[in-house]
Design a protein around this nucleic acid. Structure first.
Lengths: 148, 148
DNA sequence: GCCAGATAAGTTGTGCACAATTAAATCGCG
DNA sequence: CGCGATTTAATTGTGCACAACTTATCTGGC
């Protein structure tokens, strides 16, 4: 009997557990603003280029989420008054997503969140950077393989 | 304007994206056996000690999932003929989860899965071990903080 | 032995993820 | 120009996650 199928040996479980643990750290913080973690990620993308008004597909390409996930999520963010959705004039298939004034303003109130979360991991800055880069490399390797 | 709120800088997004990417690697493999990734994780725990028949809570402690997630999942695994659930004789509150013969047999057919997935990450063995250990440390740090 | 509090599993409701399908608009080839 | 193929978002259905609640059972103090 090999040990390959032992739970604690699997990188994949470590990744799955760590991802949920970090989301647990975000949850009470974001809860105060009525946000979920995926909603916060959408806002991060919009805050980076506040006047870009990306389409649903473009948002999806950054976050690697499809319209099946984003459409209802964006509808909730719109309902909360944080984003606006409007059909592109030039191409009526596209829906452009922009920030409301309220959505823009939220940025300031959330800018201390990442350091608080980073602190909760117990890793120092160089470890965090190394971890992030390794994970990004894994994600890109997998997606490159899928496209071929 | 600080750069703290830039998506690609966030460890948390890297973790979230990598976790979903690795699940994407598992999906087509597990699909052939009619399993989802969380169902596969439950089977991993059961395969480690095939005669232990852990309770729902004990399974949950290993996987960090609650009965709200596990109850319906176990019902589906039972429906698929892979596990058995029975009330403990000594404590009728508890439900013990054991493998069926079919569930036991599945182990052999899935033992080559982890190496295939590891290969897809593009990391070598020492990188995988280091990544796993860092992630495990993060998860445990977070959970230790939550208990206090 | 009785019962207040604790514990275990299940249920309900919300919000992702993702596959598959649908509907509308656009593109491009002949 | 006309129309089939493509692109885009939304919808539908399934299965996690997780909070909040319910129900059944057990435990310890009296």
């Amino acid at each position: 009997m090999t040990d390959d199928l032992v739970l604690r040996r699997q990188v994949c479980f470590a990744l799955y557990a760590a991802s949920r643990a970090l989301t647990d750290v975000y949850r009470p913080i974001l809860d105060e603003f009525g946000l979920t973690y995926p909603q916060y990620l959408v806002l991060l993308v919009l805050w980076e280029r506040p006047d870009a008004a990306p389409t649903v597909s473009e948002l999806g390409a950054e976050l690697r989420l499809d319209s099946g996930t984003l459409s209802p999520l964006l509808k909730r963010l719109e309902g909360a008054g944080l984003v606006l959705r409007r059909r592109s004039a030039r191409d009526e298939r596209r829906v452009e997503v922009g920030l409301t004034e309220q959505g823009r303003a939220l940025r300031e109130r959330l800018c201390d969140v990442p350091p608080r979360v980073a602190q909760a991991t117990g890793l120092d800055l160089s470890e965090l950077v190394a971890l992030r880069d390794t994970l990004t490399r894994v994600t890109e390797t997998i997606h490159r393989q899928k496209e071929q």
